[in-house]
Amino acid sequence: MTTPPPMNTPAPLRSATWRSRSANQTRLAFGQALLELGQEDPSTVVISADTQDLLGIRSFAHDFPERFVELGIAEQNAIGVAAGMATTGLHPFVCAYAPFITARSMEQVRNDLAYARQRVVIGAAASGISLGVAGGTHHALEDLALMRSLPNMTVIVPADVTEAYRATLATRDLDGPVYLRLGGRVEEPPVGDLEAPFQVGRSVQLRSGGDVSIIACGALVSLGLQAAALLHGEGIEARVINMHTIKPLDRDAVLRAAGETRGIVTAEEHHLCGGLGGAVAELLALERPTYMRMIGMPDVFAVIGPTTAVREKYGMSAAGIARACRSLPGLR
């Protein structure tokens, strides 16, 4: 294996004091974090696939024009170019639409990034059904399954802007490719402690509870907390875990939840096949068979519509998660 050139060792980041000024969406928090990375680490390069506004990277392009590369609407090329740049010691961040950069560029992601183990971050905005009104061609409900199936890949799904910002900075310390799943125009409410450090692969327990565990990622974390509040009113105490890293999965947190509560409900804005629920089920089936329910997109293409309404139709709501919890044996 050809050894890559040594990585730069930049100064510590100022992220601890970061507060979103204008970024109220995870995709824009990503762009703001790139600005900080650009200042701290000269190897940071940003690749746009005609996505300068989508991911809020115009500031980066303005401040670091020589480290900003526009490649147009050509996702396969964007991944290949990023891989090539990474071999020379740069740290590329590819800014793209989740549905296109995963499905269309899957072979480039597999071969050029994962197999060749190149240090490239994919910032994938408009994931899930965040572009609900755009229709099924623009929904990304299989991206986690695709990315999670690749060896060497890290898969992160931030739940809010603070986490998106911190997760983006955290990719600096990772080897190999990273898939960072970002949202669209929906402003997700903040979850958890704004001061808490972000650790890749280490989930965050947002609420304790001994009856049932809700393991969620992305936008569904906030809905999971709402579901726990509903259940509390009925005398059911739900543990809520923000599983922001899908790969590598926080096995200990999942196994602990399986051991300490009566069942697990996973919740994600993704097909029930191959995402967070799949990852949890795979682990539990082998290590600790546990009653489970899975909230997410069933095996159909989603209807066209506003994101929240489409989520609700398929049970991706506080009520839907609470209903799934109640349906576990011994909880009603």
Partner: peptide, 30 residues
């Protein structure tokens, strides 16, 4: 890349030129 001197794992066709573009950009930028 398990062998020294191999710059990229290729052979799935239509990948190498994009990688070359990235290398050329990396050369210029640095």
């Amino acid at each position: 890349m398990k062998l020294p001197g191999i710059e990229m794992c290729t052979g799935a066709l239509g990948h190498g030129l994009s990688i070359g573009v990235g290398m050329a950009l990396g050369s210029r930028l640095q």
